[in-house]
Write a protein that binds this DNA or RNA. Structure first.
Ligand SMILES: NC(=O)c1ccc[n+]([C@@H]2O[C@H](COP(=O)([O-])OP(=O)(O)OC[C@H]3O[C@@H](n4cnc5c(N)ncnc54)[C@H](O)[C@@H]3O)[C@@H](O)[C@H]2O)c1
Ligand SMILES: NC(=O)c1ccc[n+]([C@@H]2O[C@H](COP(=O)([O-])OP(=O)(O)OC[C@H]3O[C@@H](n4cnc5c(N)ncnc54)[C@H](O)[C@@H]3O)[C@@H](O)[C@H]2O)c1
Lengths: 216, 216
DNA sequence: TATTTATCGATATTTTTTTATCGTATAGCA
DNA sequence: TGCTATACGATAAAAAAATATCGATAAATA
């Protein structure tokens, strides 16, 4: 199935890694040295055994009666995710959502560095949003030749998503973090990740309707 | 395991339902009447058989050589998710992200109606953001007594997440759509859904690092 | 030093999810 | 009407993920 070239296993584990990382960093800031699977499980509302299973991926060995080395885990998870060094990206569509992402401080935790924004609105071109310069989308190809970014955040209106995607791909972007509601089409060697708020809401709604006695 | 009171199965299916719904509505707008599992699978980059399995949940029967009734599927999925009627909600923390959600037009597709915003910033109280009135967070309990909303969208700074959660819970909120990076703690009968951007980025990063020959 | 206790980690089991197989139903068409 | 191609759907199989069991190890304590 060539559509699944980029299928990876242990995907649920990968999805949990950032959550572990977040807690581990908090602990590290409090000068904690070790943490148990039970502690992390409690925080994340999962089973301790699942935490230990996930940590097999990190190759960090825990010690009985003590737990895992926090710094060891952090280093290993960061390395696994490639979050040890800055991750250069651009953002296309500096609208409401785009601007809020540019101003999202905690994004630095993932070492994501947004080098430039691109927009079609002449009013926005030439300005800086939260310190990030905004360029005309027409200059995308030209500027991407100079920037090292291979990752793009897509926050244009859904109707423009495919057009801009095509432009991004032909300009050398290899990964697209897609916030639009469109299912964009890319060549086989380009990775996309769709951020779908609706699916989270769907889960919430189903859980609420299933287990709540009263309507909604 | 009482933490899993609200565990539901077929969760991956539930997560995909909004994506089906989105495409089905597009088709309906084009006056299409029927759709095949192969068509939807192609759009979503999944296998047709998975679409058919998912549709078992809708109890809509497809007809060979024709496919599924689009209107039937839409009605069934909406009913399943409870998206057939307006879903009243409030939003706490009318900052960058909060404001962008309030201005998110496509949110109406889920029939989510945000009745009010709440914020601690006196500058924001009394204003309207994208037509939604913003009240002081101190009036939350009082106003929730009058509003029918049982769902809250949480977009306050992460440091305030737990405090506000406690307030929401004691004010009668039963479901919290949590956009902060905190793992909030709630009583057993309250549902939370954490929207974690980091996990999407993690998946993207891992996919990119795994299958790209060149670094990043 | 022996005992107790917490916690890991190897292995096995169960559950859930995805994918495959193949018979069946139906629309279109000769 | 009978043939053919298409798409479903029941059943089975495979794969993946989560959970359980339990022995081993190391810290704390007596
Ligand atoms: N606002 C939200 O909370 C939210 C949430 C989830 C997803 N989204 C998605 O994010 C996208 C943007 O939503 P928004 O609310 O920020 O809309 P918006 O209209 O505020 O922002 C869109 C921006 O893209 C720019 N733009 C339009 N066409 C362009 C083009 N061809 N090239 C470059 N830039 C272009 C516009 O000038 C504008 O600045 C939509 O696809 C929406 O579905 C938004
Ligand atoms: N900006 C993003 O793109 C983004 C993305 C994902 C998650 N988040 C999360 O969303 C949250 C908000 O982020 P933001 O970028 O919008 O920050 P922000 O500072 O722009 O917005 C926070 C808002 O909450 C209000 N507030 C603060 N304390 C409050 C309280 N006790 N009660 C009520 N309101 C209060 C502030 O006045 C402000 O209006 C954070 O937890 C962040 O982690 C943001």
């Amino acid at each position: 199935m060539d559509r699944n070239v980029f299928k990876i296993d242990k995907l649920p584990t990968v999805r949990r890694l950032p959550a572990y990382l977040h807690i581990l960093r908090q602990l590290a800031r409090c000068d904690e040295k070790f943490v148990s699977s039970a502690f992390l499980a409690e925080k994340l509302n999962i089973e301790p055994i699942l935490v230990r299973k996930d940590f097999e991926l990190t190759r960090v060995a825990g010690t009985p009666r003590v737990g895992y080395s926090i710094s060891g885990l952090i280093a290993s998870i960061e390395e696994f995710l490639g979050w040890g060094e800055d991750l250069d990206a651009i953002l296309v569509g500096v609208g409401q959502l785009g601007a809020s992402i540019l101003g999202y401080r905690e994004l630095m935790d993932f070492r994501l560095r947004i080098l430039a924004g691109f927009d079609s609105d002449p009013e926005k071109v030439g300005t800086a949003v939260h310190g990030v310069p905004v360029f005309a989308v027409t200059r995308l190809e030209e500027l991407l030749g100079r920037l090292r970014a291979r990752l793009a955040i897509l926050t244009v209106p859904s109707a423009d998503a495919q057009n801009i995607t095509d432009l991004l791909v032909s300009s050398g972007i290899r990964g697209i973090w897609n916030y639009t509601s469109e299912n964009i089409v890319v060549p086989a060697d380009v990775i996309t990740q769709k951020e779908d708020l609706a699916s989270g809401l769907a889960v919430l709604c189903v859980k609420m309707s299933r287990n709540m006695p009263s309507p909604l």
